[in-house]
């Protein structure tokens, strides 16, 4: 009999964990989008105030953002810039989007917005570069607001769904 209870406990725990995981993905997506926004603002500051060249600016910004996924993305762009076959910074940014997208919780739509920040990167004068980054940051802000709304409305639903589906399975099996 105790084996049955132990099995039920395992099923319930797994279902709760699955529900929490889905909720965490929503939370992480929101945080990652906010961190990307912060990264673009910091990049704009590096460009606007000290005209730091892109490779150094990317490393500097990666040290100042907290999210490891966004740090990894910025370091990947930097790494791409060191490759001899890299033609320009836009290509490096887009290559990093390709390489990193499975490791973060962003949706395809979010990545499309992140990819838009590549347009003209490093190939514009200072003022135009700042305008372009500001435009990308505005789009990310809209995306982050939408992600936050989804998180607020769906977080509890996923947690309850996890626990309740676990309970349903247990009841059916018992």
């Amino acid at each position: 009999m105790w084996i049955k209870y132990l099995g039920a406990a395992f099923i319930l725990a797994a279902a709760v964990m699955w529900g929490n995981l889905q909720a965490a993905k929503l939370r992480d997506r929101t945080r990652e989008l906010e961190e990307f926004r912060l990264a673009l603002r910091l990049l704009a500051a590096e460009i606007g105030y000290t005209a730091t060249p892109l490779p150094r600016a990317l490393l500097e910004v990666s040290r100042r953002v907290a999210n490891p996924g966004v740090q990894f993305f910025l370091e990947t762009v930097w790494q791409q810039l060191q490759e001899p076959q890299t033609a320009d910074a836009s290509a490096a940014w887009l290559a990093a989007v390709q390489n990193v997208q499975r490791q973060l919780q962003l949706t395809a739509q979010d990545w499309a917005v992140v990819a838009r920040a590549a347009a003209g990167l490093g190939g514009l004068g200072r003022e135009d570069q700042l305008k372009q980054l500001a435009a990308a940051e505005t789009q990310l802000a809209a995306q982050a607001a939408q992600a936050a709304a989804v998180y607020a409305s769906n977080e509890k639903m996923w947690r309850y769904l996890g626990a309740l589906s676990g309970l349903a399975v247990v009841i059916l099996l018992l």
Binding site: P53, L54, P55, L81, A92, L121, G122, G125
Partner: peptide, 9 residues
């Protein structure tokens, strides 16, 4: 320009 025209404009 280290891929950074803005830095040397």
């Amino acid at each position: 320009t280290e891929f950074s025209l803005y830095a040397r404009d």
